[in-house]
Design a protein around this nucleic acid. Structure first.
Length: 571
RNA sequence: CGGGGCGUGGCUCAGCCUGGUUAGAGCGCCUGGUUCGGGACCAGGAGGCCGGUGGUUCAAAUCCACUCGCCCCGACCA
């Protein structure tokens, strides 16, 4: 392609609305332009790159026997009503009406539509297993679109669905996807971790997320370099840092201490001269009809997800001040588990075996010392705490890291949710109707691009992996007006095109600095400078990422470029 | 939905508080010329009903009200 003929609107300055690196660079490099909040135009460079990502996805999905479909984004409401998700999705789903007033919606994902196809057509176990996928536009009315292409209202997703007769079959389909996803992300040149994920409101037994560590992310992941342990923060478990001081010995009875005006853990800890690890924190939470007191070590945070799992109730809220006073007889700063009646107490397992700690006294401005779980109050132990910085791996005690990440893919054992709600059954070997077991598996196509930009950029711009860069190499005659350089560049361009290389020829009549800056900005992995060294028969091959430059003879340049590209290819 | 910020040529911003010539700058763009190894230089030029509506005023980019849009923090997020 001749750069002079292309629409690559690069910007010298960062547009103000862009905050995260990938957003800034995709705008500056002329990949994308914004149309509205969370709605973007993908220009030529973005489209080239996204198509390459999609092609890798397609190849790997086909490799595991996936069959590509293309389903409507515009869905009748009925399908979603059948599964119950028409209500569950709430405001996150775009809804509209046709001219006759019939309700329609824009698909956020396609479990319903796929299941609707399957239940009409799959009749026998002999037709299973199936893996169906599509690469298609999804719509989500995000409450807050942000971070450029990372959180948008319209995006491209590869979504696949597996249909199996039995759980063992689902295990196989799931594993096939896991392997395919690793190949896809490897081929896209990403560094990622696959983590155990919380299955969420979707139900289902097992799920893993593929995450890329970046400060632009919104999800937290806990990993251990030594053991390879990794899990979403929502689900992660760990060994907490040990208490900063030993518990007082002996079988002591609770005793009130006057703590005027000391409400927060920090205040009480400072006032009493006792580390926060010796305090118990009591939270009053209302889940559905039931009120709970959750007890945690002073320095620990409640994991909302774990609390939800412990109570089996998906929704909960902190109790209102009046409720706390009514139930426990004190305000938030002085609550504790001792003497509590009619409220279920859940206590975090980190407090198992602890003795003679400090808690609120359920009396304003008073705390209790010498409180021992199991003796001074009865409670159910549960894992309730969120993993914190400094915690260690639960089995080995190896150090853990908490990473900020962006989710690029998710594989999920759905189970029978849709088969049951939508009636997807087949006849088994014995002629008995059996529900089909499903899996669902997604990849955010734009997020793969964003993650690559976040991962690989420097002060001059992006530096994409060769497999997903819009071009593999850019040819830069250094002095535009020089006919000799131009002839050599023309020739090399023809050779590379002939060889099937994705080559961008910067034939613009611009000063070299501008061409270099632009090439660096748009992230093409290799650049060939055709300049003064041509006099001695050489051109320079520059690696965008490493900035290494090697002189190669013009005569063999095309071959040298091809082997450099091949060597850089992640797959 | 709560809190904060911003809307002025394509981009980045000044001007607004304290109303008053023809609304500015840098970058980009167009023409001609000189240049050519990391965002060149000279000369000339085009381009803006100041987000919208209504109000106050002799007079509004500037003050007031409403409204729309965008960004950030939080809530939310299969």
């Amino acid at each position: 392609m001749l750069w002079s003929r292309l629409f690559i609107p690069t910007l010298r300055e960062n547009p103000t609305e862009a905050e995260v690196v990938s957003h800034q660079l995709l705008l500056r490099a002329g990949y994308i332009r914004q149309l509205g909040a969370g709605i973007y135009n993908y220009l030529y460079l973005a489209q080239r790159s996204l198509l390459k990502i999609q092609e890798i996805v397609r190849q790997e999905m086909d490799q595991i026997g996936g069959q590509e479909f293309y389903l409507p984004a515009l869905n009748p409401a009925e399908v979603w009503q059948e599964s119950g998700r028409y209500d569950v999705m709430g405001d996150n789903m775009f809804r509209l009406k046709d001219r006759f007033g019939r309700p329609l919606c824009l698909g956020m994902t396609h479990e319903e539509v796929m299941t609707a196809i399957a239940r009409g057509e799959l009749r026998s176990y002999k037709q299973l297993p199936q893996i169906w996928y599509q690469i298609q536009t999804k719509f989500r009315d995000e409450p807050r679109p942000k971070s450029g292409l990372l959180r948008v209202r319209q995006f491209i997703m590869k979504d696949s669905y597996s249909f199996d007769l039995a759980p063992e079959g689902l295990d196989v389909s799931y594993e096939k996807h896991r392997v395919a996803y690793c190949r896809i992300f490897d081929r896209c040149g990403l560094e990622y971790v696959a983590v155990e994920a919380h299955s969420g409101a979707m139900g289902g037994s097992q799920s893993q997320e593929f995450m890329v560590a970046t400060s632009a992310g919104e999800d937290y992941v806990v990993t251990c370099r030594q053991t390879g342990y990794s899990a979403n923060l929502e689900k992660a478990v760990s060994r907490p840092v040990p208490p900063a001081a030993p518990d007082p010995e002996g079988d002591l009875a609770p005793e009130e201490i006057h703590t005027p005006g000391q409400k927060t853990i920090e205040e009480v800890s400072a006032f009493l001269g006792v580390p926060s690890t010796s305090l118990m924190k009591s939270l009053v939470l209302v889940a559905g009809e039931t009120t709970y007191v959750a007890v945690l070590r002073g320095d620990h945070q409640l994991s909302e997800t774990k609390f939800q799992s412990a109570t089996g109730c998906p929704e909960f809220r902190p109790a209102h001040p009046e409720e706390m006073r009514q139930l426990l007889g004190a305000d938030a700063g002085s609550l504790g588990p001792v003497g509590v009646k009619g409220v279920k107490i859940l206590i975090d397992s980190a407090l198992e075996g602890r003795r003679n700690m400090i808690s609120g006294a359920n009396k304003d401005d008073y705390h209790l010392r010498n409180v021992t779980p199991g003796e001074d109050f009865q409670a159910e132990f549960h894992d309730l705490r969120q993993v914190a910085e400094g915690d260690t791996e639960i089995e080995t005690g190896a150090p853990l890291e908490i990473l900020k990440t962006v989710e690029i893919g998710h594989i999920f054992k759905l189970g029978y949710k849709y088969s049951h709600s939508m009636g997807l059954n087949v006849l088994d070997h014995n002629g008995v109707e059996t529900p089909v077991i499903m899996g669902s598996y997604g990849i955010g196509i734009e997020r793969v691009l964003c993650a690559a930009v976040e991962l690989y950029s420097d002060g001059n711009g992006m530096s994409l992996p060769v497999s997903i860069a819009p071009f593999e190499v850019v040819l830069t005659p250094v002095k535009s007006a020089d006919a000799t350089l131009r002839e050599a560049a023309d020739k090399l361009y023809a050779e590379l095109k002939q060889a099937g290389v994705d080559v961008l020829y910067d034939d613009r009549d611009l000063s070299p600095g501008v061409k270099f800056k632009d090439a660096d900005l748009i992230g093409v992995p290799f650049r060939v400078n055709i300049g003064k060294k041509l006099a001695s028969g050489m051109v320079e091959l520059v690696n965008r990422r490493t900035k290494e430059s090697t002189d190669v003879p013009v005569a063999g340049a095309a071959a040298a470029i091809q082997s450099a590209i091949a060597a850089a290819r992640p797959d």
